[in-house]
Simulated scan of single mutants.
Amino acid sequence: MGEKEKVAKVREISGRRKNKIKYSVGDHIFQIINYTVFTLITLICVYPFYYIVINTISDNKLVDLGRVMFYPIGLHFDNYVNIMKLPNMGTGAINSVARTVIGTVLCTLITSYMAYLFTKEELWGRKVWYRLTVATMYFSAGLIPVYLNIKMLGLMDTFWVYIIPSLISVYNMVLVKTYIESLPASLEESAQIDGAGYFRRFAVIVLPLCVPILATIALYSAVGHWNNFMDCLLYIQSPKLYTLQYILNMYFRQAAQLAQQIANGTVSANEQALNALTPTSVKLTVTVVITVPILLVYPFVQRYFVKGIMVGAVKG
């Protein structure tokens, strides 16, 4: 009997065994309850975002009255068109994408290398430096000292104020350190015998093995960079350096003021026609615009996320 025939016969036997499995009434009831519960949980998780999306493409007056619940009414896409017509939107989008990509790459590499160094027992004062670093997670100098520090470093009103202050994430460093400590030491020892230094061992051996945890902390860093607008509010004065989130937040405040002017009758009919957005529609549209890019990135790192966070969080 050939190899292929043996494999086919084994599959046939295993298939017969599966067909012989009989489920009791209790098993069927359990499966029905199980599927029902998980379907309800899925709907509870998905519905809020679905609710926001259908409200952004529905009649703004009906949205303000709370009449849009399960399907769009008065379908239109004017909210997104009006949002994209805002001044500096293109520049803001470029700034947000640039700070997210550059900040995420540099933060992931530098944080992981710092974590790698803390795994080396030969590092002078390793435990002391590690504890001092972790202490920064719980103690902060405050807003004013940080502002003065950034000003003295010459980072005010520059693009690098988005990148340099966030190069190190202590929480992510702890996760990566724990993950590296779970790797077999023999892999690195063989490279050390061949004369490889710390950086070469990290780049060639450790880094490729840390893809799950690196994808996890990269996601954390990307979300933080993409959503942050406080640094733009505090440190940036030039409109050409505004981020997308700051511009949208600024427009939201302007839309609220406009709605108040309309209520007071101080805005003409032509101006009302040009500014059909309401504060509620602005808030919902901004939420979708800011959230969608991260939702598009998440599926690519989801398979690494659970493994990375579980292994990296076993011990600290």
Rank of each mutant, 00 (worst) to 15 (best):
G2L: 12
E5S: 15
A8D: 08
K9D: 08
K9M: 12
G15E: 15
K20A: 13
K20Y: 13
I29C: 05
Q31T: 07
T36N: 10
L40Q: 03
T42H: 05
L43V: 13
Y51P: 01
Y51H: 14
V53P: 00
V53R: 01
N55M: 07
T56R: 02
S58E: 05
D59I: 04
N60H: 09
N60T: 05
L65I: 08
L65G: 05
R67Q: 14
R67M: 15
F70S: 05
Y71E: 06
Y71L: 12
G74H: 14
I83N: 02
L86D: 05
M89F: 14
T91Q: 15
I94L: 11
S96L: 04
L106C: 09
S112D: 00
E121V: 10
E122R: 15
W124Y: 13
W129D: 08
T133P: 06
V134C: 12
A135E: 15
M137C: 10
Y138M: 14
F139I: 14
S140H: 10
G142Q: 03
P145D: 03
L148K: 03
D157S: 09
W160I: 11
V161L: 00
Y162N: 02
S166F: 07
S166K: 07
L167M: 13
N172T: 08
K177P: 01
T178Q: 10
S182V: 11
S186L: 06
L187E: 09
E189R: 04
S190A: 04
Q192K: 12
G195S: 06
A196N: 10
G197R: 08
I205E: 00
L207S: 03
L209E: 04
V211Q: 06
V211E: 10
I213D: 01
I217Y: 00
I217Q: 00
A218C: 14
L219H: 01
V223M: 10
H225P: 05
M230R: 08
Y235C: 09
I236E: 00
I236Q: 00
L244C: 11
I247L: 15
M250K: 14
Q254G: 15
Q254K: 13
A256H: 02
Q257P: 09
Q260Y: 06
Q261M: 14
N264F: 15
T266P: 04
T266A: 14
E271T: 14
L277M: 15
V286S: 04
V288A: 04
L295P: 03
P299N: 10
Y304I: 00
F305Y: 11
V306L: 10
G312R: 01
